[in-house]
């Protein structure tokens, strides 16, 4: 399966999962909405250029926004994640390219600790920015802090569970391809 087709299917699966499962299930608490759809952006191949990353991030957020009737909210957060992603990857991956030849970020490609840091930073950014935008509209500061922490926690739990349950069979980057 080509990268393009695989990522399209992944996007559809993540959006449907987010809209029809995670937004629908009775929540543990009114502050906590589990989020996982932005894992799509975290899983995009390394080879995607920064420009395309921004455009894809924006569209991903916008598609979810049209389901939840909040135009711009998730788009803004996803865009931030897509913008920051290359910087974080640069810091966390080995500089020596001979050791580093996987196609997309995964625990296998980056080792568990750097990958966990990578997911943690971007999750915190996504939720922090999104809840901040919501908070401008309504809510108190304590709500804001609790919501960011709780949502980040539950999303990390979901992502690592997904990571353990569905290990991706990753192809190596080769010169012949």
């Amino acid at each position: 399966m080509s990268d393009f087709l695989r990522n399209i299917l992944r996007l559809a699966a993540f959006i449907l999962l987010q809209v029809y499962v995670l937004n629908k299930i009775p929540h543990l608490h009114r502050f906590i909405t589990p989020y996982i759809y932005y894992l799509f952006i975290l899983w995009l191949p390394f080879s995607v250029s920064r420009m395309w990353l921004l455009i894809i991030g924006f569209l991903t957020g916008l598609i979810l926004d049209y389901f939840t009737m909040t135009p711009g909210l998730h788009a803004a957060a996803c865009l931030l994640v897509a913008y920051v992603r290359p910087f974080v990857i640069n810091i966390l991956t080995p500089k020596d390219s001979s050791e580093f030849n996987y196609r997309e970020p995964s625990p296998k490609a980056m080792q568990w600790t750097p990958y966990a840091v990578y997911v943690f930073i971007l999750t915190l950014l996504h939720h922090g920015y999104m809840v901040f935008l919501e908070w401008l509209d309504v809510g108190s500061f304590l709500d804001f802090i609790i919501k960011v922490i709780a949502t980040t926690g539950i999303s990390l739990l979901l992502i690592f569970t997904a990571e353990l349950l569905f290990p991706r069979r990753l192809k190596f980057r080769t010169n012949t391809a």
């Binding site: 420009m51 909040t70 788009a75 865009l79 913008y83």
Partner: peptide, 19 residues
Amino acid sequence: TILTFLILQGVALWFLFNY
């Protein structure tokens, strides 16, 4: 890159606050 980022961010916030 940063210009695109800022422009798209502007569009998103415009959507949000003009809803």
